[in-house]
């Protein structure tokens, strides 16, 4: 894989002295879906704004397909589509005019067939002659995606694309993003919803206080940083956990029928063999064993807490 976006030592300080980004470096691969996670004020939007030209950045900090965003801004920006966090569309324009305007703005000649197909793909074709202000919130967000895709970009930035939309529409958005990836578009999205990143991203980046804490493949991240839970179902209820098992920090369910053991998958010894041996010595009769992986949400919370 080759990098389509390269960010090197990007620092962004606002006039009030707030450091929104601190020496942030990131390589984004062509064709991937990268999810940027982070709490409010972490620097996600500042990062996107810097890449997309909404904020001034020094030379040699950001390149898009090899073009410096500060020098070759025409070439770099023409490759990018941006869907900002807030719903910001001209209320009195029709859907068709708004999307066509965006295409022209990015230097592309009129192409009615492409725009009509785009509106069809986003379930907007029926609304093409409606004014933007008459659309629902979800439809407005689709219009924004259509505007961002109107000039056939290679990279799409989605700043919290599903914030405040219902579950059904969120899943629709995920389908749209999946289709975009299939067509070769690189997608970078910021989100608060861990399940969103878990569902659609190839790689996850975690930002906090302007610093990129990590960027890693989603599965590797879960594998590497995730702890696992071993649930031990008992044949007979236990009243308490014997002191001989205290080093395992087990928890007992309210009905006494299940023991839970949290272990680190990265550790050389997970302690499972020792635990099972101790359980046998303590005369516990086991019915079933089950393991489950911790979610991205737990990983994210732990990272940001650190």
């Amino acid at each position: 894989m080759t990098s389509i976006i390269s960010i090197k030592n990007l620092t962004k300080t606002y006039s009030n002295g707030f450091h929104a980004l601190l020496k942030l470096s990131l390589e984004i691969e062509e064709g991937e879906i990268l999810a940027l996670l982070g709490p409010n004020g972490a620097g996600k939007t500042t990062l996107i704004s810097s890449v997309c030209g909404l904020l001034s950045v020094p030379k040699n900090t950001i390149t898009i397909a090899g073009f410096d965003v500060s020098v070759d801004y025409r070439k770099s920006r023409s490759l990018i589509g941006l869907v900002p966090q807030e719903i910001t569309i001209e209320p009195f324009e029709t859907v068709m005019n708004a999307v066509s305007f965006s295409r022209g703005l990015f230097g592309k000649p009129k192409n009615s067939a492409y725009i009509e197909q785009l509106l069809t793909d986003l379930s907007l074709y029926d609304k093409r002659n409606q004014k933007n202000m008459t659309l629902s919130g979800g439809m407005k967000r689709r219009v924004m995606i259509a505007k961002a895709l109107s000039h056939e970009p290679k990279i799409l930035f989605l700043d919290e694309p599903t914030a405040g939309v219902d579950v059904e529409l969120r899943k629709d958005m995920w389908d749209v993003i999946a289709r975009l990836r299939e067509s070769g578009v690189t997608v970078i999205l910021t989100t608060h919803y861990i399940e969103e990143a878990e569902e659609i991203a190839d790689r996850i980046g975690v930002i906090n206080k302007g610093e990129l804490l990590l960027v890693e493949g989603k599965n590797e991240l879960i594998q590497r940083m995730g702890s696992k839970n071993l649930s031990i179902e008992l044949q007979e209820p236990a009243k308490k956990i014997p002191t001989s098992l205290s080093r395992f920090n087990l928890t007992l369910s309210n009905d006494g029928m299940q023991l839970n053991y949290i272990y680190d998958v990265r550790a050389q010894k997970t302690g499972i063999v020792d635990l099972l041996s101790e359980l046998k010595k303590a005369s516990f009769k086991l019915r079933d064993l089950q393991t489950s992986q911790s979610s991205l949400e737990e990983i994210f919370v732990n990272l940001v807490k650190e």
Partner: peptide
Amino acid sequence: PKFLGTIYEVLSAPI
């Protein structure tokens, strides 16, 4: 456009 926020589109365009 500044008031509505739609100025982002002009600023992010190759123009």
